[in-house]
Design a binder for these strands. Structure first.
Length: 423
RNA sequence: GGAGAGGUGACAGAGUGGCCGAAUGUGGCGGUCUCGAAAACCGUUGGAUGCCAUUAGGUGUCCCGUGGGUUCAAAUCCCACCCUCUCCGCCA
C-alpha cells in the first residue's frame, strides 16, 4: 500500500507507474474518494467540536443545578447530523481503503521497464552447466523409476498436481530442508521460525495476497482461514501492528513451511513433475530492515539464497525482473533460476524481493530509531532460500547417472545417514 | 464442547456516565547534585488523521480488545464477536 498523501500529491507519478507495469489501477476513483472524504471530514469535525464544547456547558450547568434543556434539544439535532455524516464517511473510508489496497507498489528506479518476462535482465550466470553423455531423463521419470516419487497414487488419494515422496525421496526432501535451515541459522545468522500454515484475512491483506489474488489461495470452507501460499505471509505478519525497537533491526527470520497454491489459470503449464504443484515445501528468508539500507540488505539476501545452490553444486543464473514481471507487491525483484537439464533451460527456484514500506504500511509494522523517536515503517524483504520441491527436482536431474541412479551432493550426505547414491 | 474470570498507554495498575487521552508506580529521556556513578530531587515522556501556516508552528477530530446500540454526553451502561487465563470434558 502506498502512502495516501504521496498518492494525493503525485497522481501523475502513479499514473506512469501503472502504465509501466501494464496495469490499470483505481487511481481516479481513489483521488475522487479522498477528495470527498476530506471535505466531509471538515464539516463533521466542526460539528463534533461544537458538540464537545456544548457537552462541557451541559455538565457545568448540571453541576450548578441549572436548566440545560434548551441546548440539549439543540444538540439532539446536531448529533443526528453527525451520525449521518459519520455513516457517509464510513462508506467512503471503506471504498477508499479498498482502492488503496488494489494499487500496486512503486517499482524502484533501478527496475527496467518492460512489457513481459522477455524484458527481464540476466545479471549473471554461476556454476557449470553439466554435460551428459547419455539421454537426459526428466525428474518425474527418474523419480518414478527409482520408486521415490509417486504421482499416480497421489492422484487417487488427493488429485492432480500432488505427489508422494517415498524412501530416499522423502529422505532427500527432509535433507534439503534441514541443510538449508542449518545454513541460514548458522552461517547467515537467521532466527528460525516455525509458523502456522493457516492465516486469517488480515494477514493475507497485510502481505498483499488479498484483496486482489484471493483465487490463488486455498480457503478453509466456512472459516476465515487461508492456507499459506508462502511462509512470507505468517512470518511477515509476525510483527503486524507492532512498533519494533530500532536496535533490533535488521530482524532476520528463516522458516520452513509447506506452501499451498491453487494455481488458478495455470492449466496446461508444467503439467508433469513437481515444478508446478498445489503443495510444496519451501525454506523462506524474511527480513525486517531500516529503510535507509534496504537495497543493500536485498543484495545480502540474494547472496544468502545463492549460497544454497553453490553448496549443492547447481548451476544457476540471477535475473532482475522488469516492471511487467515484478508482481503486485515488490519494488524490486531478483529471481534465482536453476539449471534444469530436462528443460534445457533455467527454472525459477527463488524469488527475492524488496517491498520497501508496501507491506509494512498494510500490516502496520513500524520501528523507532531510538527511544521517543517518531515511529517509521520498516522495509520488508523476503526470498526463497530455496524452494525445496524444485530443488529436489534439480538435484535429481543434475546428479543423474547413465544407469538412472542419483549421486547425492556432498553437503546433503550428513543429512541422509551418509547415503552417497540413490539407487 | 461446558463453566467462570479478564482485556486500559512501553510495562504494572486505578478509573461505574460529564471536570478522563486517562491517576499512581516502573521504565525511557533531559536536568540538579557528583571527579564520575548510584541514590535522591525537579521536569518531561502515546498513536492516527484533517484544516490553516508551511520556517517555526497553530488548531480540530478520533483512538481504553473489535463492531454495533442507548444518551445532549460512553473507558464507564446494553448487545454481538474476537482474544487471553483458570477449571472440566475430549484429544496428538
Amino acid at each position: 500500500m502506498l502512502d495516501l498523501k504521496f498518492i494525493r500529491q503525485n497522481p501523475e507519478t502513479i499514473r506512469e507507474m501503472l502504465k509501466s507495469r501494464g496495469e490499470e489501477g483505481p487511481l481516479d476513483e481513489l483521488l475522487d474518494l479522498d477528495e470527498q472524504r476530506r471535505s466531509i471530514l471538515v464539516e463533521v469535525e466542526q460539528l463534533k467540536a461544537r458538540r464537545n464544547e456544548v457537552s462541557e456547558q451541559v455538565a457545568k450547568l448540571k453541576r450548578e443545578k441549572k436548566d440545560a434543556d434548551d441546548i440539549i434539544t439543540e444538540m439532539k439535532g446536531v448529533s443526528q447530523t453527525i451520525k449521518d455524516y459519520d455513516e457517509q464517511l464510513r462508506v467512503i473510508d471503506e471504498q477508499l481503503l479498498d482502492r488503496q489496497l488494489r494499487l500496486p507498489n512503486m517499482p524502484h528506479s533501478s527496475v527496467p521497464v518492460g512489457t513481459s518476462d522477455e524484458d527481464n535482465v540476466e545479471l549473471r550466470q554461476e556454476g557449470q552447466i553439466p554435460e551428459f553423455r547419455f539421454e537426459v531423463v526428466p525428474h518425474w521419470d527418474l523419480g518414478v523409476n527409482l520408486d521415490i516419487i509417486d504421482f499416480e497414487r497421489a492422484g487417487k488419494v488427493t488429485g492432480s498436481r500432488f505427489y508422494f515422496l517415498k524412501g530416499q525421496g522423502a529422505c532427500l526432501e527432509r535433507a534439503l530442508i534441514n541443510f538449508m535451515l542449518d545454513l541460514h541459522t548458522g552461517a547467515h545468522g537467521y532466527t528460525e521460525i516455525f509458523a502456522p500454515f493457516l492465516v486469517n484475512k488480515e494477514s493475507a491483506l497485510g502481505t498483499g495476497q488479498l484483496p486482489k489474488f484471493g483465487e490463488d489461495m486455498f480457503k478453509v470452507e466456512g472459516q476465515d482461514y487461508y492456507l499459506i501460499p508462502t511462509a512470507e505471509v505468517p512470518v511477515t505478519n509476525l510483527y503486524r501492528d507492532e512498533i519494533l525497537d530500532g536496535s533490533l533491526l535488521p530482524l532476520n527470520h528463516v522458516a520452513y513451511t509447506a506452501c499451498f497454491r491453487s494455481e488458478a489459470g495455470a492449466h496446461g503449464r508444467d503439467t508433469r513433475g513437481v515444478i508446478r504443484v498445489h503443495q510444496f515445501n519451501k525454506v523462506e528468508l524474511v527480513r525486517f530492515v531500516e529503510p535507509d539500507n534496504s537495497y543493500q540488505e536485498l543484495d545480502t539476501l540474494v547472496r544468502h539464497a545463492e549460497v544454497v545452490l553453490q553448496k549443492l553444486g547447481l548451476a544457476y543464473r540471477v535475473s532482475q525482473m522488469c516492471t511487467a514481471d515484478l508482481g503486485f507487491t515488490a519494488a524490486k525483484k531478483l529471481d534465482l533460476e536453476v539449471w534444469m537439464p530436462s528443460y534445457g533451460k533455467y527454472v525459477e527456484i527463488s524469488s527475492c524481493s524488496n517491498f520497501e514500506s508496501f507491506q509494512a504500511r498494510r500490516a502496520n509494522i513500524r520501528f523507532r530509531r531510538e527511544q521517543g523517536a517518531k515511529p517509521e515503517f520498516v522495509h520488508t524483504l523476503n526470498g526463497s532460500g530455496v524452494a525445496i520441491g524444485r530443488c529436489l527436482a534439480a538435484v535429481l536431474e543434475n546428479y543423474q547417472q547413465a544407469d538412472g541412479t542419483i549421486i547425492v551432493p556432498e553437503v546433503l550426505r550428513p543429512y541422509m545417514s551418509g547415503v552417497k547414491r540413490i539407487e
